[in-house]
Amino acid sequence: MTDPVPPGEKRSVNRPGARRVPTPADVLAAAQSAVDAAQSAAGQALEAAQLTAGQAFDTAVRLPPASAQLAAQLPDLLDNLSTAIDRLNATVDRLDRTLALADPAFVAYDRLLVRLEALISLGEDLFGALSRLPGVGRLGRMAGIVTPDLPAEPEPEPPRKRSRRKS
């Protein structure tokens, strides 16, 4: 039970279940279309490669040797910088831990410094009071103690001799 096709009409391709066998002309047209598309893609790729290579060459020609050398060393410089930053971070962490351990000592030093300042002030007051006693400056000089803060006692002036005139 086949459907008869009226004479002069071709079978419809859009019929469900109908398969069309390509003719050699169809295969040749598809192959030619594929070759054209491949040639077009290859031409575009070749133009893009030539443009990129031309720009790279222009850049390389215009680039001074020192800049090219610097650009070549850039990856190593970045690696070294990364290593230095890692070391710096480790050092900062170590310093943080050390300061956290030393914090109680700093608090004790702060308390001790206040007491030492008070003791020094008391010593200065004592020297000031002793310097006002008569004879302490002379006693210090005789003992060989030189204290620049203490006021020196004035040396007594020798008595003047009076000359007697005979009239």
Score class of each variant (00 low, 15 high):
residue 105 A to M: 05
residue 106 F to H: 05
residue 107 V to I: 11
residue 107 V to F: 01
residue 108 A to W: 10
residue 110 D to S: 00
residue 110 D to F: 01
residue 111 R to A: 07
residue 111 R to Q: 12
residue 112 L to C: 05
residue 112 L to T: 11
residue 113 L to S: 02
residue 113 L to I: 05
residue 113 L to F: 06
residue 114 V to E: 13
residue 114 V to D: 14
residue 114 V to M: 07
residue 115 R to F: 02
residue 115 R to V: 05
residue 115 R to D: 13
residue 115 R to Y: 01
residue 117 E to N: 08
residue 117 E to M: 03
residue 117 E to P: 01
residue 118 A to W: 03
residue 118 A to K: 10
residue 118 A to H: 04
residue 118 A to D: 13
residue 119 L to H: 05
residue 119 L to V: 08
residue 119 L to Q: 10
residue 119 L to T: 10
residue 119 L to F: 05
residue 120 I to Y: 00
residue 121 S to A: 13
residue 121 S to Q: 09
residue 121 S to L: 11
residue 122 L to S: 02
residue 123 G to T: 11
residue 123 G to F: 09
residue 124 E to L: 05
residue 124 E to A: 06
residue 125 D to L: 09
residue 125 D to S: 12
residue 125 D to P: 05
residue 125 D to R: 08
residue 126 L to H: 09
residue 126 L to D: 14
residue 127 F to H: 14
residue 127 F to P: 00
residue 127 F to E: 13
residue 127 F to A: 11
residue 127 F to R: 15
residue 128 G to A: 12
residue 128 G to W: 12
residue 128 G to E: 13
residue 128 G to I: 00
residue 129 A to N: 15
residue 129 A to D: 15
residue 130 L to D: 06
residue 131 S to R: 02
residue 131 S to C: 09
residue 131 S to Y: 08
residue 131 S to W: 08
residue 132 R to A: 12
residue 134 P to H: 11
residue 134 P to V: 08
residue 135 G to T: 02
residue 135 G to N: 06
residue 136 V to I: 14
residue 136 V to D: 01
residue 137 G to L: 09
residue 137 G to W: 11
residue 137 G to A: 10
residue 137 G to E: 12
residue 138 R to Y: 10
residue 138 R to S: 12
residue 139 L to M: 10
residue 140 G to R: 08
residue 140 G to W: 13
residue 140 G to S: 15
residue 140 G to I: 09
residue 141 R to D: 14
residue 141 R to S: 11
residue 141 R to N: 14
residue 141 R to G: 07
residue 141 R to K: 10
residue 141 R to P: 03
residue 143 A to R: 01
residue 143 A to F: 08
residue 144 G to S: 04
residue 144 G to N: 04
residue 144 G to V: 00
residue 144 G to C: 06
residue 145 I to Y: 03
residue 145 I to G: 03
residue 145 I to M: 00
residue 145 I to W: 03
residue 146 V to L: 14
residue 146 V to S: 12
residue 146 V to R: 14
residue 146 V to I: 10
residue 146 V to P: 00
residue 147 T to W: 14
residue 147 T to I: 12
residue 148 P to R: 13
residue 148 P to Q: 11
residue 148 P to Y: 12
residue 148 P to S: 14
residue 149 D to G: 03
residue 149 D to V: 03
residue 149 D to S: 07
residue 149 D to N: 05
residue 149 D to C: 03
residue 150 L to N: 15
residue 150 L to R: 14
residue 151 P to N: 00
residue 151 P to Y: 03
residue 152 A to G: 04
residue 152 A to F: 06
residue 153 E to I: 06
